[in-house]
């Protein structure tokens, strides 16, 4: 089975601070890491490979510095790494990013594509599903457990109040939750070998047969960011337990009157 995992290099949000004036992330001096959900996707792919055989290719779109994220994936045991990087790709929103990654995946070939559910810096959860739409393959999002049966994948999909058990034929795309698999450490030998391997770089020239300039980059991005802001922390709530219905109603009414809501 040819498994391709799409990963994103993100700032380690544990280390991130916000600029209090502009409300944007201060990225300077913040270490970069592989997005958590994506790393679980790598682990799930490696476990599948160990179980049914095949190869794991890891793909990352980003600036040349994303190289280190791919080396880490190789050091965990991935077989091949592809960096999708070009000036033309800069400024892409989720839609344009998915168009570019889909073009790269068509060039690489795949039976199963795994992406993380969402990235900790953008939090959109859009790129994975959009890649599947671009590739016109079935997708199952929020995968918590996966297994292989013949040419089908059985996915336990997390839902708000239940799970869905879904059987899907390959080729297909899954978006991985962190719960899917606890990522292994790199192996020390893997680190040494990761820097001996070549990382393929796909630029615009490599993908231009299946890309139009107007569909990618800032120009190809339908998203306009109106404003970005930090969620304000809410105050701690109060718990009123063991009240009768009448008492509960009174507490709520009193509170609303106190706040001049009613």
């Amino acid at each position: 089975m040819k498994i391709v995992v799409c990963i994103k290099q993100v700032p380690d949000t544990n280390e991130v601070k916000l600029d209090p004036v502009t409300n944007t992330l201060i990225r300077e001096g913040v270490p970069s890491i592989i997005n958590h959900d994506d790393k679980s996707g790598i682990e799930a792919a490696l476990q599948l490979k160990e179980k049914v055989g095949g190869t794991v290719t890891v793909v990352c779109m980003g600036p040349p510095q994303a190289d280190v994220a791919l080396r880490e994936a190789l050091a965990m045991g991935c077989d091949e790494a592809v960096l999708v990087s070009a000036r033309e790709f800069g400024g892409s929103d989720t839609w344009a990013t998915a168009v570019i990654i889909a073009a790269a995946l068509n060039k690489i070939g795949y039976d199963l594509v795994i992406t993380g559910r969402q990235a900790i810096d953008g939090d959109t959860a859009q790129v994975g599903p959009q890649i599947a739409e671009n590739l016109q393959i079935p997708q199952v999002s929020y995968a918590e457990e996966i297994d292989v049966e013949g040419d089908s994948i059985i996915v336990k999909r997390q839902f708000e109040d239940r799970y869905h058990i879904i059987e899907v034929k390959t080729p297909c795309l899954l978006t991985a939750l962190q719960e899917l698999a606890a990522p292994r450490y790199m192996h020390a030998r893997g680190v040494v070998e990761a820097y001996e391997k070549e990382i393929k770089v796909f630029g615009y020239e490599d993908l231009k047969d299946s890309l139009k300039l107007e569909d990618i980059g800032l120009k190809g991005s339908p998203t306009n960011v109106f404003k970005s802001f930090t969620k304000q922390a809410k105050g701690v709530g109060t718990l009123h337990a063991d009240l009768s219905v009448d008492e509960a109603v009174k507490v709520i009414i009193d509170k609303m009157e106190e706040r001049h809501i009613i």
Binding site: H187, R189, E193
Partner: peptide, 26 residues
């Protein structure tokens, strides 16, 4: 399991293929 006990030794013998600087960092 993670190769921390074989850093400066050749991969020909199943080691990590690293060096003494890597071992010192470890």
């Amino acid at each position: 399991k993670y190769g921390l006990m074989g850093i400066p030794y050749s991969r020909d013998y199943g080691g990590v293929g690293g060096d003494y600087l890597g071992y010192a960092l470890c």
